[in-house]
Amino acid sequence: MTEENTDRDLIDRIRSGDEEALSRFYAESRERLGKMVQFRMDPRLAARMDPEDVLQEAWIAARQRIHHWIEAPERDLFIWLRLITSQTLVDLHRKHLGTRMRDARREVVPGHGGPAASTVSIAGRLLASVTSPSQAAMKAEISRRLEKALDAMDPIDREVLVLRHFEELSNNEVAEVLGMKKTATSNRYVRALGRLRGILESMPGFPGGTES
């Protein structure tokens, strides 16, 4: 049996109410979901709980609410699980941080109800390759400038960039997450990449960047 047929069989079993099949699918999706949680989790929440705790809470919610997907299975199952995980993360932010989670850089993203990736998280990931002593000395200033530039980007463009580049979702998956047409998300990704490239090229310490 091919991998495609195996996946189809697994989905069919889940539609018939097979919880073991759902458990297997969730286990296979866990790494991708964990990547999303780690990237979007507020550091203050991360100090209190592990991303695995979020995934466990999300699994419980998915088991309890799987009938919603079964009743409307036209939605991709992974995207539905990602939605449940995003909502779980929002709930945990509110439970543990309350009003302190109200940060302009961590708003809930229109279209998918999950927490937006903060510009701090994006900048941190982009700066992870900065390792030389001369670059490290400028890292704080570069980070500040990069965060400011990212804040100036269109929020949806920034979200498309995060979904494609950091969560490694396909264009079709991004379109479903955001409730947009595939051509629109593709165009936004190209635009966001161009904007990001321009930002990075103006920063010392990046390939093609300005000299300090």
Rank of each mutant, 00 (worst) to 15 (best):
Ser202Glu: 12
Asp91Met: 07
Asp12His: 06
Tyr189Gly: 03
Arg102Trp: 10
Ser170Ala: 13
Trp69Tyr: 01
Arg102Ala: 11
Arg32Lys: 14
Ser16Met: 14
Leu10Tyr: 03
Gly98Phe: 02
Phe206Asn: 01
Ala21Arg: 09
Thr131Glu: 14
Thr85Arg: 05
Lys139Gly: 03
Leu22His: 03
Glu3Cys: 03
Arg191Gln: 12
Glu31Thr: 15
Ile156Arg: 15
Ile199Pro: 06
Arg8Leu: 10
Leu81Trp: 00
Ala117Met: 14
Ile11Glu: 15
Met101Asp: 10
Arg144Ile: 04
Thr185Glu: 12
Ile142Tyr: 00
Ser118Ile: 11
Ala117Leu: 09
Phe78Gly: 01
Ala47Asp: 13
Leu178Trp: 10
Gly114Pro: 07
Ile60Met: 13
Ser118Gln: 07
Arg48Pro: 03
Leu150Pro: 10
Val37Phe: 11
Asp9Val: 10
Glu141Asp: 15
Leu193Trp: 11
Gly209Phe: 03
Ala123Val: 04
Trp59Ala: 12
Arg82Pro: 00
Leu163Asn: 07
Ala140His: 07
Ser29Pro: 14
Asp9Leu: 13
Arg40Leu: 10
Phe206Pro: 00
Pro51Glu: 09
Gln87Ser: 05
Glu20Gln: 14
Val177Glu: 11
Ala184Tyr: 06
Glu176Arg: 08
Ser143Lys: 11
Arg158His: 07
Pro155Ala: 09
Gly208Asn: 04
Gly114Ser: 09
Ala21Leu: 11
Ser202Thr: 05
Val190Ile: 15
Met180Ala: 09
Gly111Cys: 09
Met153Lys: 07
Arg40Gly: 06
Ser129Met: 06
Thr119Arg: 12
Glu107Thr: 11
Gly98Met: 02
Arg13Leu: 14
Leu150Asp: 06
Ser202Ile: 01
Arg15Met: 15
Ala152Asp: 15
Thr88Met: 04
Gln87Val: 08
Gly124Thr: 10
Glu176Phe: 02
Val54Thr: 10
Tyr189His: 14
Trp80Gln: 00
Arg102Val: 11
Thr99Phe: 04
Ser134Gly: 06
Leu169Gly: 03
Val190Ser: 12
Asp103Asn: 12
Gly111Ala: 06
Arg24Ala: 11
Thr88Trp: 06
Arg8Phe: 02
Pro43Gln: 05
Arg100Ile: 02
Met49Tyr: 01
Ile60Val: 15
Arg75Ser: 08
Gly209Asp: 05
Ile142Met: 10
His165Trp: 12
Ala152Lys: 14
Gly124Glu: 07
Thr183Met: 13
Val174Leu: 12
Lys181Asn: 13
Arg8Ala: 12
Ile14Lys: 02
Gly209Met: 04
Val162Glu: 04
Ser143Leu: 04
Arg191Ala: 15
Leu127Asp: 03
Glu28Lys: 13
Ile70Asn: 02
Trp80Arg: 00
Pro133Gln: 00
Asp42Asn: 14
Thr183Cys: 06
Val160Gly: 08
Ser29Asp: 10
